Simulated scan of single mutants.
Amino acid sequence: MAELTLTKIIKAPREVVFDAWTKPEHLKNWWGPGKVYCPEAHVDLQVGGKYRIANKIEDGSILWFSGKFEEVMPPEKLVYDWYVGENDNAPSLVTVLFREHDDGTELVVWHARIGDEATRDMHGKGWLGCLEKLDEMFA
């Protein structure tokens, strides 16, 4: 199993960054790396609640990310399992921390239980692209 941790300072209060991460209308503005974008998002923000987020790829296909929330502590922490596509039988686990920082919010994304290093590297590029768009949204 592999894992990755990314940290980014976002120039907005953590309550605002938490909302951007958890409200579908905000997710659609930044989710997806590079030219990938989010045409549809569903979030039931409670322990046991499910989420489903679409990534529309450049070729027009859609890749879904989904799972359920294991921890919801607004505006400081989220923990949720992470399925890629419709046939992913072994979910990984994502923990997101929203920490107060002098410049806004220190965002920490810890993605664990990833099947192998190649998949970890792919997720790492995806997360970096998403975090860049989130940062740009508040720049």
Rank of each mutant, 00 (worst) to 15 (best):
A90Y: 07
T119Y: 13
G60S: 04
L6N: 04
A54E: 03
T22E: 07
N29C: 05
E25P: 06
D121M: 12
W64I: 10
H42P: 01
K133A: 10
V43M: 09
R14P: 03
R120M: 15
G115L: 09
D81H: 09
V96P: 02
E76N: 10
L4M: 15
E100T: 10
W31V: 00
V47A: 13
Q46P: 02
I62G: 07
L45Q: 02
G49C: 08
N55W: 13
M122W: 13
E117P: 04
T22L: 06
A12D: 06
E86P: 03
K50T: 14
T5V: 13
G34Q: 14
C38H: 08
Y51F: 15
K35T: 15
V79R: 10
H26Y: 06
Q46K: 15
W110C: 05
W30N: 00
W64H: 09
V16Y: 06
L6P: 07
W110D: 12
E25C: 02
E86N: 08
A90V: 14
E106A: 08
K11G: 11
G85I: 13
T95W: 12
M122D: 12
W21V: 04
E106L: 07
W82K: 05
P91S: 09
L131G: 02
E100A: 12
G104K: 10
H26K: 06
F98N: 03
V72A: 03
V94L: 13
P91Y: 12
A54W: 12
L4R: 09
W21K: 00
E106I: 02
G85Q: 10
T105Y: 09
F98W: 06
E3S: 14
D135P: 02
C38Q: 08
D88E: 05
L134M: 02
D102P: 15
